[in-house]
Design a binder for these strands. Sequence first.
DNA 1: CCTTGCCCCGACCGATCGTTCGGTTACTCT
DNA 2: AGAGTAACCGAACGATCGGTCGGGGCAAGG
Lengths: 194, 194
Amino acid sequence: MTMAKRDTYTPDSLLAVAVEVFIERGYDGTSMEHLSRAAGISKSSIYHHVRSKEELLRRAISRALDGLFGVLEEPGATGGRAIERLEYVTRRVAEVLLDELPYVTLLLRVRGNTDTERWAMERRREFDHRVAELLMEAAADGDLRPDVDIPLATRLLFGMINSIVEWYRPGRGTSRDEVAEAVVRTAFAGLRTS
Amino acid sequence: MTMAKRDTYTPDSLLAVAVEVFIERGYDGTSMEHLSRAAGISKSSIYHHVRSKEELLRRAISRALDGLFGVLEEPGATGGRAIERLEYVTRRVAEVLLDELPYVTLLLRVRGNTDTERWAMERRREFDHRVAELLMEAAADGDLRPDVDIPLATRLLFGMINSIVEWYRPGRGTSRDEVAEAVVRTAFAGLRTS
DNA sequence: CCTTGCCCCGACCGATCGTTCGGTTACTCT
DNA sequence: AGAGTAACCGAACGATCGGTCGGGGCAAGG
């Protein structure tokens, strides 16, 4: 009746292993041989769980994108003054990035060599655009320092948030919430009026 | 007598072509076939100018590192109050990054798969450490907001600066000096006291 | 004219790439 | 016990990888 838990790979648990290797060696720098060694099963066995190497990438990237776009649907991102929504989104994006660190890391490193990668880049641009609109609204409300260049500020804001994937390691140093808080505080000190 | 200029490749002019392809496709995602097509010469001809694919990477990375470490030797980085030196270094690093954009881009994307890449990562860490020291000095002088976490602030500062390589394209949008100025202003608004 | 040396080429090397295939194990269900 | 199947494996596929090799074209110097 109840399906007994077996200690074997599911597509998702295999994905978790694969993503770690992708991050360490880069997607193109990772061979199926590398993956099989890290997973402890043979190269051909991997194909029992997933169709291809690229499917692993697609699954990982989808998970990251779902998390990021999900933030834009949350109440804090849809109601209230633009500057407040912007601050909410900034904090939540940082949190999602920290919670789904390996998957978002992979998303941010995609270069556009395959159809999957180009699709990921397009979705990412779309997300950035949505946040840029928030910045424009906040500027129209007069809640941003008058001398900020909106497109430039958007770039630098994302640059700061996204850089987290380059150095954050869970359990070492600053905690998740502290990082998110520091990002919000540092970024908005340079943006907000008063 | 005078060596007539011939329109043929030098190791450096070939490097410029190769670096562009490396950035577009990623180092591991670039084959010598890709390089030969971009350079307009055959694959084997490339080996007349450079010893290997990895030598191209090493040359590019060296150029980036020389530029960055060079900043630390400039007068503005060695004399005066720590907070002033920090601001000088921040601006100059942004400028060097913009001037040597493709080479620094490559440096920042290295993952550590080969000896060359591991060497690059070590030199980079060394550079980051030098700047982190400046932050500590400035904090000791009481010129930084008392609530800033020094290691964290260092990460975010570099995150913002380094993100430039992800979006800046010369001749499009904001100018070199405007970008450098915006980085300094935005970053120091969140760091400096008063 | 002929030689020298730089720049380039096509053909090819062994190794490794992502993927496929036929078959074996081990567990579940009847 | 026997049937069915999920999970796995070694061997091998054609393609492509980074790199080598011997030689050809051509401008410069004699």
